[in-house]
Amino acid sequence: MIRIGTSGWRYPEWRDDFYRGVPQRLWLSHLAQHVRTIEINSSFYHPQPASNYRKWVAETPPDFVFAVKGPKQITHVQRLRHVEDPLKTFADSLALGTKQGPILWQLPPSLRFDRATIQDFLAALPQGRHALEPRHESFRTDAYFDLLRAHNVAHVVSDAPTFPCIEAVTADFAYLRLHGHDELYISSYDDEQLDEWAGKIRGWDRDTYVYFDNTMHGAAPHNALALAQRLDTPIRSHM
Rank of each mutant, 00 (worst) to 15 (best):
R3Y: 11
R3W: 04
P12H: 12
P12D: 05
F18C: 03
G21M: 01
P23I: 03
R25Y: 07
S29P: 04
L31G: 00
L31A: 02
Q33C: 02
I38V: 14
S42R: 06
S43I: 11
P47F: 10
P49H: 09
N52L: 11
R54F: 08
K55T: 13
K55E: 08
T60W: 09
T60E: 00
P62T: 00
D63K: 10
V65A: 03
F66I: 10
V68T: 12
V68R: 11
K69V: 07
G70I: 08
P71G: 01
I74A: 08
V77R: 13
V77P: 00
R81S: 12
R81W: 02
V83Y: 05
E84K: 14
E84M: 02
D85Q: 15
D85S: 10
P86W: 06
T89K: 12
F90N: 07
S93I: 05
S93P: 04
L96K: 05
L96M: 06
T98L: 12
T98C: 00
K99A: 03
K99T: 08
Q100S: 09
G101L: 05
P102L: 09
I103N: 07
I103G: 00
I103L: 03
L104V: 06
P109K: 06
R112T: 13
R112I: 00
F113Q: 05
D114I: 07
D114E: 15
A123Q: 06
A123S: 06
L125P: 11
P126E: 12
Q127K: 10
E133G: 14
R135N: 10
E137Q: 15
T141D: 14
Y144S: 04
L147M: 08
R149K: 12
N152D: 15
S158L: 12
A160C: 12
F163K: 06
F163E: 03
C165R: 11
E167S: 12
F173A: 05
L176M: 09
L176V: 14
L178T: 04
H179K: 00
L184W: 14
Y185V: 00
Y185H: 12
Y189F: 09
Y189H: 07
D190L: 08
D191Y: 09
E192L: 14
D195C: 08
W197T: 04
R202E: 14
R202C: 13
R202Y: 08
G203S: 14
D205Q: 12
D207C: 06
D207Q: 12
Y209G: 01
V210C: 13
D213K: 04
D213N: 14
N214W: 03
A220L: 02
N223R: 02
L225T: 10
S237E: 09
S237L: 15
